[in-house]
């Protein structure tokens, strides 16, 4: 464990909590892409199956349980509890356009052709594109509430910190996980455009980030 990865995991946790609290306190999921949250719950489900097979550390186990619980709670709030505030019309990204390539790629590129490895690879590739429905929804509505942008900022920060973690691990312990790194870099690139908007718009203290 290094400070970059710890900060990344904390930033990821903060993002998830920001979104969950926003939905719970405003009792509304307007402007939130339920599809992205479903994809994130699928990412955690397919990646954390090793909860039942290997024990790595208390931190690892606790964080996996927390991420699974919070992501399912978020999906529950969107599709059950506050479903009448769910903006399905604007949440119109065709997730099959993400799932089919990701499933195909995880069958082509993996470390071992075993269920656990293929599912893990699937979760890595899926996480890279899971935010697309949310970013698409923001471009469609043309704006994002500032809390939603904070959510995206911390998600992007988590990915940027993971890249720093991989650089650090490569130089200190020669660690290099090709699938995770390639997919992680692609995922981080998707946030770059948003980061620019976030810094130029939201930091100016405007309540909503409206896209140009």
């Amino acid at each position: 464990m290094n400070v970059f990865r710890l900060a990344g995991d904390v930033s990821h946790l903060v993002a998830i909590i920001i979104l969950l609290l926003k939905i719970w306190r405003s009792r509304s999921c307007a402007g939130i892409s339920g599809k992205s949250q479903l994809l994130f719950a699928l990412v955690f489900t397919t990646r954390y199956l090793d909860l039942f097979t290997v024990y790595i550390s208390a931190y690892n186990t606790i964080m996996k349980v927390v991420f699974l619980a919070l992501s399912y709670a978020t999906v529950y709030l969107i599709y059950m509890r506050f479903r009448n505030t769910y903006d399905s019309e604007n949440d119109s990204f065709r997730v099959e356009f993400l799932l089919v390539p990701v499933i195909g790629l995880s069958f082509l590129e993996h470390y071992a052709f075993t269920p656990m490895e293929v599912l893990w690879t699937f979760s890595i590739f899926l996480e890279a594109v899971a935010i697309m429905p949310q970013l698409f929804m923001i471009t469609k509505t043309g704006e994002a509430e500032s809390i939603t942008t904070h959510y995206l900022f911390f998600l992007g920060l988590y990915r940027a910190l993971y890249i720093a973690n991989w650089v650090w691990r490569y130089h200190t312990e020669g660690f290099f996980d090709q699938i995770a790194v390639v997919s992680g870099v692609v995922q981080t690139i998707f946030y770059c455009d948003f980061f620019y908007l976030y810094v130029t718009k939201v930091v100016q203290g405007r309540s909503k980030m409206s896209l140009p």
Binding site: R5, N60, K64
Partner: peptide
């Protein structure tokens, strides 16, 4: 290439 190594990252 970390094939089969313990996946300790979240």
């Amino acid at each position: 290439q970390e094939d089969g190594a313990v996946k300790d990252e979240l």
